[in-house]
Write a protein that binds this DNA or RNA. Structure first.
Lengths: 204, 204
DNA sequence: CTTTTGATATGATCCAGATCATACTAACCT
DNA sequence: AGGTTAGTATGATCTGGATCATATCAAAAG
């Protein structure tokens, strides 16, 4: 059992370092796969989706970030470009801080720096888990694992049903499956009594 | 173009903090998926393979670590358990340091701490890349990307042929494909002039 | 040199999940 | 209420890569 560690930086502290707020409409692209990174980003309100789009326009969702979570950090540290694009999944507000200021902030503050190291470690764990799933298991196992991770990631209790705020399409794009396959798999899980569907919404 | 940043800790420094050397035979398991972490590990000689084994005994290789590289860090930071097992891929020597000492070392030394943050960021990038590949592309694309990453990761020049020190089976286990598929794909790449095969060895 | 072992090679068959097509449902808007 | 849209549902068909089977090759070991 792993407790939820939320590693966001205090908004007032960010503002003191010169951070600014920005609001975007659903669908707005904050940055693209391949771009260089200039800012540290943190979600204040709404949801940010980080994803790759392949040749044929199919999406792979690397992660969905909610209020309090930061996103797009790797390039700030390793100097490379973004491995995925960031898109506002609904209207949302973010706070961002210039890269140089962010790095200085870390240098001045061990606790915050260590917090980021922890965040990266957790992300790495999620990615290890999902790539294992995608490469070794079938739809049922993949979807089950994703749903479990989803619950764990938002501090929901393992043993009781929670409403899953993901569309079938999103689940598909996070597990490397097609919508139809996810829909069929979820129905199958319902038939087996592993989850509930109510007005199309999934409770797991 | 990304330059290779090697983020290992100086061996003498590790020894000063109480680290110890250990030698293992090919096949020795250093720790298992699910175990709790007690040590920081760094390869001195040989290769360490981190992998998951699924229900039917199929392997997924999360990474292969060579001299100078550290491995199995995430659980040291986030307090969770290992997401994969570590196995000596050939006879090898590693140096390890107790978790508490390692964390104190980071606390005392910003440069080293930041180096780890960078390492985690690079690993995260590799995983983002591979999970995108595995979920969105076919064998040809996946193998090509893996080979490119392999070269980049060891500072080989993009434009000239380098010998790839990976078996077809390893390539399969890193890309979520079967040996036969990898063999056929590599032949196909040879026919298309994208690589050379000499006595079974791949030059890319 | 011969044997053994681990890796590469290649054809034949099969099947889970993708793809295609079409319909239904829920929620929101005016 | 009717209309619009985004998401869910379900059947029919197709196919790329898995699986199975068997052969060959290369290097190490005896």
């Amino acid at each position: 059992m792993q407790k939820q560690v939320n590693c966001d930086i205090d908004v007032d502290l960010l503002l003191a370092w010169g951070a600014t707020f920005h609001t975007y409409q659903r669908g707005h692209v904050l940055f693209c796969e391949g771009d260089l990174a200039h800012f540290y980003y943190q979600v204040v309100e709404g949801k940010i989706k980080m994803c790759n789009t392949n040749d044929e326009g199919r999406e792979f969702i690397q992660g969905i970030f909610e209020p309090g979570e930061s996103f797009g950090e790797p390039p700030l540290f390793d100097g490379g470009s973004y491995p995925a694009s960031a898109v506002a999944d609904e209207q949302c507000t973010i706070i961002r801080l210039r890269k140089e200021n962010f790095l200085q902030l870390l240098k001045d503050n061990f606790e915050i720096h260590f917090c980021f190291t922890q965040t990266l470690a957790r992300r790495l764990r999620y990615k290890s888990l999902m790539s294992k799933e995608i490469s070794s298991y079938g739809p049922l196992h993949r979807v089950t694992t994703l749903l479990q991770e989803y619950k764990k990631g938002r501090g929901m209790k393992e043993n009781e049903l929670s409403k899953i705020e993901l569309t079938r399409q999103q689940i598909a794009d996070m597990t490397g499956l097609r919508v139809e396959t996810v829909i069929r798999t979820i129905r199958q899980m319902q038939d087996a009594g592993n989850l509930k569907i109510e007005k199309g919404k999934v409770y797991f």
